[in-house]
Design a binder for these strands. Structure first.
Lengths: 86, 86
DNA sequence: AACTTACGTAAGTGTCAGCTTACGAAGTCG
DNA sequence: CGACTTCGTAAGCTGACACTTACGTAAGTT
C-alpha cells in the first residue's frame, strides 16, 4: 500500500522492491482488491495496480469510528478502575 | 480484560465465564501480567487478578500517540492519491 | 506461427498462536 | 498428616497464515 501510494505500479515492479516473490505480491493484491483498497487495469501484458481512493477513505472513516468507540470504552474502564481504587 | 474491569477475580472464576479452559486463562494472564496490564496477589489457595491502572493508562497514551501518527500518514496518503487524481 | 513477457492460481511447506490434557507445587482444613 | 482446592507450566495438537515453486494463460514481439 505504501508503494502503491507513491505511484501506480505493476506486479513485477512491486515485487522487485519487496523481499517476497512475485506470486506472493499477487496474493496480497488479490486480498486488497477484494477489500476495495486497490484497483487494477490491464496495460498490454502487464497489470497496473493503484490505491482505490474511495475504498481507502471508507476504511478511514470506519477506523475513525471504531477507534472512537474503543477509546471511549478504554477510558470508561480506566476511570472506573481508578474510581474504585480511591 | 473486560471481565477484570468489572471486578477483580480468580482464575477459576474467570475461566467459568469464558469459553476456554482454566490453563488457557492462566496463559493469557501471564502475558497480560508481563505487559503490566494486570496484577495478581495470592489469597489463600486462590490468586486474585485485577487490572493494573498505571499500565493501562500507559498503554492508552501510547495508543493515542500511535494512532495520531498513523492517522496523519493515512490522511497524507489519501489526500496525495486524491490530488493526483484531479 | 513460435517465442517472450507478465500475470494468476494451485499445491505444498514452515511457522506460530492458541488451545487442550496431564502433571506437579502450594496453600487450606478436617 | 492426609485429603482437597487452586493454580502454573510443560508437552502436544491443530488450524491459519504467509510464503515458495510449478504450471497454465493471455498479450505482445519477431
Amino acid at each position: 500500500m505504501q508503494r502503491l501510494a507513491q505511484r501506480p505500479q505493476s506486479v513485477t515492479d512491486l515485487a522487485a522492491e519487496l523481499p517476497i516473490s512475485r506470486p506472493a505480491v499477487s496474493q496480497h493484491l488479490r486480498v486488497l482488491k477484494r477489500a476495495c483498497l486497490v484497483t487494477d487495469r490491464p496495460v498490454g501484458t502487464r497489470r497496473i495496480y493503484e490505491v482505490d481512493r474511495d475504498g481507502l477513505a471508507a476504511l478511514r472513516r470506519e477506523l475513525d469510528q471504531l477507534w472512537g468507540a474503543t477509546l471511549d470504552n478504554f477510558k470508561r474502564i480506566a476511570e472506573q478502575a481508578e474510581q474504585e481504587q480511591s
